[in-house]
Amino acid sequence: MMNACPEKVIRMMDDYLDGEISPSEEKELKDYVQSCSDCRKIYQELTKTIAFVQSASHVQAPPGFVQKTMASLPKEPQRAGIKRFMRHHPLFIAAALFVLLMSAAMMSSFSDDQQFSFTKQPNLVVEGETVVVPAGETVVGNLTIRNGDLRVDGELEGNVTIVNGQYMASSGVINGEVEEIDQAFEWLWYTIKGTFRDAVSFFGGNDQSIDK
């Protein structure tokens, strides 16, 4: 039935219903609809369908929804853990920075390391230089991204370290800590922290839960 009518009519109907038809095509469509009973039937059914769908009454969230939602929230939003550490340990940072600036070797290793790279985990998708945990997927394991961004629309079970990149607008969940190391300064800090940890674990034996 529908096949008998020109394809163009259907296209014009869609444009018309989207509110994107030119006045001349609108007239053409009206003429078609008047002259062909099949086209008219489709047109009337479509407008009726839209009216029915739009007549669906607006539903409201159940009473107490706000309180219940607030009660189920975690205590505070995720944040880059390093920033908090830096706020609380300013003197330590200054000392660490001094030592680092003396270290030419570290400066050169910073500039060596400018390529996009990330920990390969199953279910990860790459869009340009953004690593994506797609909606509906779960990625298990820690993730380090260098010189690229991360977007999480699904779930990530693990800690995240992003060096020279950003944790982008995400709609998913990370069950773990997020560290963003954006600038050379923070990168240096992160490296010394790693060096410091290594030193601690070297001298401190096997009880090093902060490591992993």
């Binding site: 539903v59 969230a61 159940p62 929804f65 219940k68 939602t69 189920s72 929230l73 975690p74 939003p77 995720q78 944040r79 999480v152 944790y167 982008m168 607008a169 995400s170 709609s171 998913g172 969940v173 990370i174």
Partner: peptide
């Protein structure tokens, strides 16, 4: 309705947790 409440609540929680990415 029951599932809608569940998911709407989860959506707000995710928005809250990810608010700094907005």
């Amino acid at each position: 309705r029951h599932e809608a409440e569940d998911i709407a609540q989860e959506a707000f929680t995710r928005a809250y947790v990810n608010i700094h990415t907005f």
